[in-house]
Amino acid sequence: MGSYIIKRLISAIPVLLGITIIVFLIMAMIPGDPATAILGSYATPENVARLNRDLGLDAPLVKRYFIWLGNMLTGDFGRSYSLNRPVLDEITERFSATLILAGVSFVLCSILGILAGVVSAARQYGWADKLITLTVLVGISVPSFFLGMMMILLFAVNLRWLPVSGMYAIYGGGDLPDLLRHLIMPSLALSVVATGVIARLARSAMLEVLRQDFIRTARAKGVPERRVIMGHALRAAMVSIIPVLGIQAGFVLSGSVYIEIVFQWPGIGRMLVDAILTRDILLVQGGVVFVAACYVIFNIIVDVAQGMLDPRIKT
């Protein structure tokens, strides 16, 4: 197992490098003089020159890439112009807020999705199956940002159950219950689509597995049906569910952009949108590379989990 983890980690290095190259190339597409584009037409010449030097824009493309990469590896993501602070500081601060939101949503959609899929499969064509199928259908069709707005309207404005937005109450908040209260709506809104996708997949994976011979064996042994479904069948179905969880984690992570805007959650998605609107290129660059790298590492964890779950995979 240990060697498998190391192997996966090593195989991630080219992917991580590829990510930096792609981001770098995209940023190199900025038309015209990037420094002026970034700073706007009112920029002073000193500022333009300073930015050119900071970005290393006087050097050739390849050299610029390696300078940028080298800087990042030493933890220097540059300085944000709009915020006037180191990019990395801003990113880590914002990313932790996103991680809370996306993490809770991911746990929610995994549990709810798998549960719904299992119930749906076990009660195929029954009323529970029909109800779940219909709910899932609606769920995966609602844009999360619209859903978020409607939730605010219903639960925060009309019913006054939950706070409208933000991560903590402005006055007197800051503790865990406060955070949780602020988390309920955004995490639900963020997890709805992923829950639907996972539920669908879990249902078909369960149906596939339930037709297998070893399920008949379990029943022939006299294993109670509950255990047949929640044990034998689900265990086998997880093998095809887990990779989809990995993919959905990516959707939840990137979907948090919308939710952070709607609920004014101080996460990295909102930071990126603000940075794009203020043309704070270094902040965008750093943020994108950082989040993508985290996602790659998360996928390694998923792979390792898969390896632990399925003894047939040579580890």
Partner: peptide, 20 residues
């Protein structure tokens, strides 16, 4: 594979950031 390693919307954001 590398392009697919990105969380989806993130890549779109990067492109919009570059193009405006």
């Amino acid at each position: 594979d590398m392009l697919m390693a990105f969380p989806y919307i993130l890549l779109a954001l990067a492109i919009v950031a570059a193009l405006g």
